[in-house]
């Protein structure tokens, strides 16, 4: 039901977390998953290759998830990429800020593969690029 060929960028400063999220995405069916350890690292990667989905943690050193989101949304080349924000706890003000800045959805840690899939499905309704082919 998704376009599994797209490149996904997972951003988190903690390697274990990247691995966990990568694993969940693989279970859903995504085949191309890259990692970045902070917003700066992510921007560099986003500029050097085409990505179809960003899954980013919020709290990171150097450049956090919100800064990354703002940078992505103001960049003409990147602004259409679906952006899923990972947060540790649902904090209203923060989430509102993220939504204002153009996040496609957010997910609260810890989450299961099922929840992740649901969130991605919601994003896919708005952003068809994430959707799979005609039979998807």
């Amino acid at each position: 039901m998704f376009n599994y060929k797209i490149k996904v960028l997972v951003i988190d400063d903690f390697p274990t977390m990247r691995r966990i999220i990568k694993n969940l995405l693989k279970q859903i069916g995504f085949e191309n998953i890259d990692e970045a350890e902070n917003g700066e690292d992510a921007l560099r990667k986003l500029h050097s290759s085409d990505y179809g989905l960003i899954v980013s943690d919020w709290n990171m050193p150097v450049m956090d998830g919100l800064q990354l989101l703002k940078a992505v949304r103001t960049d003409p080349k990147l602004k259409e990429i679906p952006f899923l924000m990972v947060t540790a706890e649902a904090e209203k003000e923060k989430v509102i800020e993220a939504i204002k800045s153009g996040v496609d959805n957010y997910i609260v840690k810890p989450f299961t593969g099922e929840v992740l899939k649901e969130k991605l499905e919601k994003i896919a309704q708005k952003k068809p690029s994430l959707k799979g082919g005609s039979h998807g």
Partner: peptide, 17 residues
């Protein structure tokens, strides 16, 4: 901030596991 981030990271990953 750094201490906070450390705790935060531990909590996040531990939750998954």
């Amino acid at each position: 901030n750094e201490i906070f981030r450390g705790m935060h990271t531990l909590k996040g990953a531990a939750g998954f596991l």
